[in-house]
Amino acid sequence: MAAWKFKRILFAEDSENDVELTLEALDEYKLANSVDVVQDGEEALDYLLRRGKYEDRPDENPVVILLDLKMPKLDGLDVLRKIKEHDKLKNIPVVILTSSKLEEDIVRSYNLGANGYVVKPVDFIEFVEAIKKIGAYWVLSNEPPPAGRAMK
């Protein structure tokens, strides 16, 4: 299990309630401790590019990014664009996790290179199911790209 601690999930979400509910759901697979939470888009980029308070973070990309769309400062779509434009970050799987069912949001997200789009169900049981599936697939089943290196 030596590699386990490097399997980090970056979760960008400004709503504390959502953070709590999501962590609760991920904990079903004991994944809650692998989650790093950021409150807005700028902080997400600081984390990914190891800037500011994340300067000392190990040089390791998260295995998946769960990205809310509506956030203060930089919103989810801006962050997504920056990630997919960045050579070192563009291979990180990004799953949009949002309340928005708007078709425009879905289309724009996929156009920018999102790897998944999940609408948070109102019903908590369904919500837990959805989050569990995300965790199970992206963290447990999926083989992430070689750490920290982008394919040329």
């Binding site: 509910l21 769309l69 509506k70 949002t98 928005s100 109102v122 908590f124």
Partner: peptide
Amino acid sequence: SHDLRAPIRHIAGF
């Protein structure tokens, strides 16, 4: 879609 659904979801969740 976004702002009203969120609190409802939170109520249901908690």
